[in-house]
Design a protein around this nucleic acid. Structure first.
Lengths: 124, 124
DNA sequence: CTAAAACCTGACGTTAACGTCAGGGGCAAG
DNA sequence: CTTGCCCCTGACGTTAACGTCAGGTTTTAG
């Protein structure tokens, strides 16, 4: 039973990309935007810890929800440290409300489409 | 009691835009994309029937749901005529499924945010 | 009649998250 | 040694729904 953390096996960018289901270019972009920090090998190659994979998945989820990379960087400390200041709490709520509104909009559009589908199916 | 339809009062682009809550530029764009047809006054100004307003609102709803203007033009006959061919039915279902998947994604992201909000609220 | 408000046609600018290409290095297998 | 795969840094291209500006005409209110 090791007390000190076992030296984690570092992975390269290709493995991160494949693991998270994104392109290598996307991972580099995340670094450029300040979302993801990577060590560098002596030859300059990016080296990531394995938890970079779920982190990238999380980024994808937030992107899908309409958050910008800038906003994600501003909110990342909330996940990392579990602590937030007033500004961050306000942003969290604002994003939450925005997403909820979007869900409602999508649901309304969905109902609209289902309506037409129902009509055109029963009325060939 | 008139038998022939009363000559509908035609409205200009500004009224359409204000009525639907979009910019004049947007309405012109819709015409350019083939979404909206307008008569022209002798001097060249666009003249719309009043149902252009709810129609533009409908476009906005579809845009919000992620449909492109091209897709909307392909599906407009479904609303206008109430009739669809096989290709259109397939498109309708594809869009419906895509939107539903997006709703699920958003809901997952929402849960994720709510989780953090709950933690940071009870744990100042 | 006149000035403001509204309309017209181009046509270039914007934004975000990448895609893609050019040109070059490094490293394990055979 | 060289072949192939992965990696690197720029840097320009893409897309969709408009925004915005320029320069000119039309409609409307007074």
């Amino acid at each position: 039973m090791t007390v000190t953390a076992a030296a984690e096996r570092l992975i390269r960018i290709g493995e991160v990309a494949r693991g998270a289901g994104v392109s290598v270019r996307a991972v580099r972009y995340y670094e450029q935007q300040g979302l993801l920090i990577a060590e560098r090998s002596p030859s300059g190659q990016r080296l990531y810890r394995q938890d970079a994979v779920p982190l990238v998945r999380f980024f994808q989820q937030m992107f899908a929800a309409g958050l910008t990379s800038r906003r994600i960087t501003e909110l990342l400390p909330c996940w990392d440290s579990g602590h937030t200041d007033a500004e961050q709490r306000a942003m969290l709520r604002a994003e939450r409300d925005r997403i909820q509104a979007k869900v409602d909009d999508l649901q309304a559009a969905l109902d609209r489409l289902d309506e037409v589908i129902a009509i055109t199916d029963t009325h060939p």
